[in-house]
Amino acid sequence: MRKSNTFFLVTAIQLAILGLLMAHAAIAVQAPSNGLRQIQSLVKRLELTDLCLFTEARYTRHLSQADLNTPFQDHPLSLEHFPSGSFLAPPAMIEKLNERVD
């Protein structure tokens, strides 16, 4: 087989797989599983506020409920030391300036 034909064949197979994956994504999103609806019901019924993603510390478990000073809770100079803390962007208010200072 000519090398160009091999290349086109490989590319066509890859495109077909990608197309199937996109179709898989579209179907999964269009018809969300019962699992998602059940989780939503659980959240509503139990009045949950956070995802159970990081259970390593109390303030990473409930990110939305944590105190704003939690990364420094042990002492004023203590830096965030839990790995999941590195996923969090600082609150927008910290980055926001009232006026330009230059």
């Binding site: 996109m22 994504a25 999964a28 699992g35 998602l36 790995p83």
Partner: peptide, 24 residues
């Protein structure tokens, strides 16, 4: 390993594939 961190009770979950043509 990075997401787990020091979590002992890291959940096992399957994400819904919210992938759009724009992302690709």
């Amino acid at each position: 390993p990075a997401l787990k961190g020091w979590s002992t009770l890291y959940p096992r979950f399957k994400l819904i594939p919210f992938v759009s043509a724009e992302q690709v």
